[in-house]
Design a protein around this nucleic acid. Structure first.
Length: 884
RNA sequence: GGGCGAGUGGUGUAAUUGGUAAACACGCCAGUCUUAGGAACUGGUGGCGCAAGCCGUGGGAGUUCAAGUCUCCCCUCGCCCACCA
């Protein structure tokens, strides 16, 4: 496949390219892209053409690419697509007079680097350094306008010092619901100290009299970075924790590791978490004011998963009376439902296997006897041992459950006693971990009820969802005929429940059992008290280890470093998304040793104006970065509460076979080869011309020749116009087209519609080529709008035409609205909606005249003849339609 | 199962508020120039038809003077989430 591709490239090699011996007509200077591109890349770099200015008075424009993980396998042609798009945008903004910040850096922590290092038996740091070199070599020949002096690398201790610093800020903060923002933990401690000395909360005891450890565990419930326990998929054989998608079902339906097929079990492990859930509402609301693709916003909304519902208590029959606030109350099962309007249709309750009620029963804290306790116990153990739902087995997942025999719950709406089940289809992590089952109006409940022969009771009409009165129900008639929305509130109120908002989003696990990540800057003393690594001694550097492999004990390789463990440091490291959650701030001031970025510089650059990257980061990186930014905003460290004002996603470039470009399919096209054969300008033009920026399209080495021809056409045209006097007259038609094209190209780049911008320029070039009188000054206007796409050839021509300045820093041409106006306009003439002819009229022709002329056209008259014109539709300067 | 999006020539695709469907490019066909062409340039290229003309944007209905575009139903594909009550 690859060889085949090469032969194609060879076959399609443009004539004027490397084979110099075969000069065309001999008189013209040849277009030697290799020489030209090298020359100007060097020159731009020497003149620091793309240096951003922190103190500029000009308006700023921060154009950012999602920084890559520098992979060891090198780039394929798909990788630079997004970079080229943002580069075109940044270049236009630069020429339009903005002070542009357009940096690049590396997100180099993470598993791939570690695996690469294990495979090649070198340190991850060395692997990263090597890979970055390869990466930069490949990227540099494409002619991207990065300010390389601002390069950042998340694995550089000078960088991750600040990642750790922000982590400590998170650790030392809590979310104050009263002020609705994050605050230093001291404010909470103060609050506790005051409250508790008031003696309000006697059972909790005086805050000041608590031990360090007691205080610690109390504060841990509030810190934005906190220690907790998480259920993980543990593979004893591999000695590692697996992500959900690394677990598959074997043929017996048992969970095994995707790699190796070893058994996987659930295990609760101590982890660091970030309390992202406190920002759920703000993360949701923030989406309203940012210019992002709607589908990305939708993915985030779904991920956050807000739903409004009711929390309703069901008393358990004969449970021991408890004293709550001086009153006797029965043990309750609290359920969460978005459909309280179906409360009369409840025929049983379901609790999750992890539900607190079960442990209370087990510990005999309640006077409840479960007749089939052994069976229940066995069931719970079985469920809790198996990892959660496995992807890819849609309906295969059967719902199972066991009834708690002898336990009955009371429906607060009608006093009815219903059975209680424990089942695997109820999630402990969502809502209250308990559900009221309404089989008539919920598919899952229905499926379960059918399987176990539980009753089904309909309470709403299926079409209108109106409440059906049941004469047997207490209070029936009260809600009869209500629609769902009204009934929801009324019924919740009636049973003393409350409306609540829940989110699907969970707190983020902020730890990996791996070596190649930022160390967590905390340590635990022998008493178990956690201390911070003092800010003055940051960064806490990664120690050297002998092996990068996991230990097999569920801990990272750091667990084997005795000195590290002795000091009480955490053996987990931060996850891959730590550095990427704030790196864009570091570009504003990448070398600062005192702060993560100087406040004056942050205030100048503010936020990212245009962010370009793949759509796959919607729920990962983008959400986390927004979270960190909102946190930093609460602390007053950044001036905006959203980091990325605008976002654009580039589509993939697929292989010629329409599959994802990968070594595995042998369909990889190397950009180096394309640049060598066709030139960077051609590559850039082609990638932008292929189709919509956000679309995923197959690469075609056949089609690229069109873009090369376009570039060559421009080259030849330049030689031609240089012979036409600079200021000579030309036809106004061409002048109109030039101004229209400038307008279109400017608008299209603004909207990332690069394909149509290029199409417009092709039309213009074709026209200029046909004309013998294209003036140099007009050609130069075109050359400037071509510059963002094909900067090298534009620069070369610009200088060949006698200029000494750099075209990449020239001013974007201004559109003259007067010159854009056509003097004549074409009007389509239809009869009964079918096109029968067209007329060309002056702009100021009145309607009556247009209709008269149109009607007189022979091709039109033919259809009107003998018919009565019932109606004439005239769309100004567009069309006339005769209805007969 | 839920959410989002897309179906237009041989191919990639284009088409402001509904207003000439297929711009631009690839490929293909013919020609010009040339020792030569795999370069460049010119012309042609949705389907049926000798033609006038008719038919054409996944399928079906509808609204309208006019529908790729709006409404309803159906089919196919892609992406994301997935027992979230």
């Amino acid at each position: 496949m690859k060889d085949n591709d090469h032969s194609k490239i060879e076959k399609r090699r443009p004539s004027s390219v490397p084979r110099k011996s075969r000069a065309t007509t001999g008189k013209q200077k040849e277009y030697d892209h290799v020489k030209i591109e090298k020359k100007w890349q060097k020159e731009w770099s020497k003149k620091k053409a793309y240096k951003a200015d922190d103190t500029s008075k000009k308006p700023k424009q921060y154009v950012l690419d999602m920084f890559p993980y520098p992979s060891g396998t090198g780039l394929h042609v798909g990788h630079p697509k997004g970079y080229i798009g943002s580069d075109v945008y940044a270049r236009m903004k630069h020429m339009q007079g903005f002070n542009v910040l357009h940096p690049m850096g590396y997100d180099a922590f993470g598993l791939p680097a570690e695996q690469y290092a294990i495979q090649h038996k070198i340190s991850p740091a060395k692997a990263v350094a090597e890979n970055i070199k390869t990466f930069e070599k490949q990227l540099s020949i494409i002619g991207l306008s990065y300010d390389w002096e601002r390069k950042v690398n998340t694995t550089d201790p000078k960088f991750y010092k600040w990642t750790q610093w922000i982590f400590l800020k998170l650790y030392n903060s809590w979310y104050n619901l009263e002020t609705d923002k994050a605050e230093p933990i001291e404010t909470l401690i103060k609050k506790f100290a005051n409250e508790k000395t008031d003696g309000k909360d006697k059972e909790e005891g005086n805050w000041n009299s608590k031990s360090e450890l007691e205080k610690q565990s109390e504060l841990m419930k509030y810190r934005l970075a906190y220690e907790g326990y998480a259920e993980v998929n543990w593979c004893p054989e591999l000695g590692t924790v697996l992500a959900n998608d690394e677990v598959v079902d074997d043929k017996d339906g048992k969970p095994v590791s995707e790699r190796g097929g070893f058994p996987v079990e659930k295990r609760s492990m101590r982890q660091w978490f970030l309390r992202i859930t406190v920002y759920a509402e703000k993360l949701l609301l923030g989406l309203e004011k940012i210019d992002w693709p709607e589908h990305i916003k939708e993915i985030e909304r779904n991920w956050i998963g807000r739903s409004l519902g009711a929390e309703i208590g069901f008393n358990i029959v004969d449970s021991r009376k408890q004293i709550v606030a001086g009153k006797e109350e029965a043990e309750k099962i609290r359920v969460f439902t978005t459909r309280p309007d179906t409360l009369f249709g409840v025929t049983y309750l379901v609790i999750s296997p992890e539900h607190a009620l079960l442990s209370k029963i087990k510990d005999q804290k309640l006077e409840i006897k479960i007749e089939n306790w052994e069976e229940v116990k066995k069931y719970i153990e079985k469920i809790l041992d198996a990892p959660g739902s496995v992807k890819g087995f849609d309906d295969a997942k059967q719902k199972t459950g066991v009834e708690l025999k002898g336990v009955k719950a009371v429906n607060p709406a009608n006093g009815e006693e219903v059975p209680v089940w424990v089942a695997d289809y109820v999630l402990a992590s969502y809502g209250t971990g308990a559900v009221m089952a309404v089989p008539a109006h919920d598919e899952r409940d229905f499926e379960f009820a059918k399987k176990y022969g539980l009753p089904v009771r309909k309470v709403l009409t299926s079409e209108e969802e109106l409440f059906i009165g049941y004469s047997t129900l207490i209070n029936s008639g009260k809600f009869d005929g209500m629609d769902s929305e009204t009934a929801k509130k009324a019924i919740t109120e009636f049973v003393g429940g409350k409306m609540v908002t829940k989110y699907k989003m969970r707190d983020a696990i902020f730890a990996r059992q791996r070596y190649w990540g930022e160390p967590i800057p905390l340590f635990r003393d022998t008493e178990g008290v956690i201390h911070e690594v003092p800010e003055s001694t940051l960064p806490l550097k990664l120690p050297k280890v002998i092996s990068y492999e996991p230990t097999g004990m569920g801990q990272g390789p750091l667990a084997k470093v005795t000195a590290w463990v002795k000091k009480g440091y955490e053996t987990n490291t931060m996850p891959g998304w730590a550095g990427s959650s704030w790196y864009f701030l570091r570009y504003m001031d990448p070398k600062n040793k005192k702060v993560f970025a100087d406040r004056k510089k942050i205030d100048y650059w503010q936020d990212v104006d245009m962010y370009v990257g793949g759509a796959e980061h919607a729920t990962g990186h983008l959400l986390y970065a927004r979270f960190w930014h909102k946190f930093l905003f609460d602390l007053g460290l950044v001036p905006t509460d959203e980091p990325f004002k605008s976002l654009r996603n580039q589509g993939l470039i697929l292989g010629g076979d329409n599959r994802k470009m990968s070594k595995r399919w042998g369909n990889v096209v190397n950009p180096d080869d394309i640049v060598m054969t066709y030139g960077a300008d051609t590559l850039r033009v082609y990638e932008m011309f292929m189709g919509p920026f956000e679309a995923s399209l197959p690469w075609s080495t056949e089609n690229i020749i069109g873009s090369r021809r376009f570039v060559e056409k421009v080259w030849r045209l330049a030689m031609k116009v240089s012979k036409v006097p600079f200021d000579s007259t030309f036809d106004t038609r061409l002048e109109t087209l030039i101004h229209k094209t400038i307008q279109k190209v400017s608008d299209d780049i603004e909207h990332f519609a690069f394909n149509t911008a290029i199409s417009a320029m092709m039309i213009l070039v074709n026209e200029m080529e046909k004309s013998d009188a294209t003036a140099q000054k007009d050609f130069e206007m075109f050359l400037k709008i071509l510059t963002p796409f094909a900067p090298h050839v534009a620069e070369e021509i610009w200088h060949a035409l006698g200029h000494k300045t750099l075209i990449v820093s020239e001013t974007w041409p201004k559109v003259d609205a007067e010159k854009m106006k056509e003097s004549q306009v074409k009007i389509v003439v239809q009869v009964n909606g079918k096109v029968r002819g067209e007329i060309i009229v002056a702009l100021d022709t009145v309607e009556s005249e247009i209709v008269t002329v149109a009607q007189a056209l022979p091709a039109v008259d033919k259809w009107l003849l003998g018919n009565e014109i019932k109606k004439v539709v005239y769309v100004p300067l567009r069309l006339v339609n005769f209805v007969v």
